[in-house]
């Protein structure tokens, strides 16, 4: 049986306590809201993407559980310097990890630090907490008019 520590690994607890890239990004050129109506978790993602399609900077603001805050913190760290195209592959890999069968170990080579969130697979009601920031990222890249939802 999975232990709570599989979900609340120290890295997650740390990122929740002191989230990276937290706050407004003044010179952003894309942004979007994300909302999980079930929990009331709210996120706002700021992006600065240059003409070459590279994410130069990214930050977030919001209010949510440890999983959603840590996931957004880890995501923003991982996205810096990546191209939009690369971010799409990361999104797919992350989603795959968060919903894959428990017998499949996360591909740490591809996922890097994001692999610490693999524990959500064991907690179905919490998968959306981990993926909300990624859906919000999509909304920001696409300049979506309405907030991203995990539904």
């Amino acid at each position: 049986m999975f232990d709570l520590r599989d979900l609340y690994q120290q890295v997650i607890v740390d990122h929740n306590k002191s989230p990276r890239n937290f706050g407004k990004l003044d010179d952003c050129n894309h942004q979007a809201d994300g909302y999980n109506p079930l929990c009331g978790d709210k996120l706002h993602i700021y992006l600065r993407i240059n003409d070459a399609g590279t994410i130069e900077d990214v930050s977030f603001e919001g209010d949510g559980c440890a999983i959603s805050v840590a996931s957004a913190s880890l995501m923003t760290d991982a996205l810096k310097g990546k191209t939009v195209q690369e971010s799409q592959i990361m999104f797919e890999q992350f989603q795959h990890m968060a919903t894959s069968d428990l017998s499949e170990s996360p591909d740490e080579k591809k996922l890097g630090k994001l692999a610490v969130l693999a524990g959500v697979r064991e907690f179905p009601s919490r998968i959306k907490c981990a993926t909300l920031c990624w859906h919000t990222l999509q909304a920001a890249i696409n300049d979506a008019a309405s907030p991203a939802k995990t539904e």
């Binding site: 709570l4 609340y8 079930l38 009331g40 949510g64 559980c65 440890a66 919490r126």
Partner: peptide, 30 residues
């Protein structure tokens, strides 16, 4: 302090304790 209600809900569940974490369908109260 320092623990979001949803994290509490998950942790308590692993102890066999079922509680509600959320806005209780009363968002204006929140």
């Amino acid at each position: 302090d320092g623990v979001h209600p949803h994290d509490l809900g998950t942790i308590l569940d692993r102890e066999g304790v079922a509680i509600r974490a959320g806005h209780h369908c009363a968002m204006p109260v929140m």
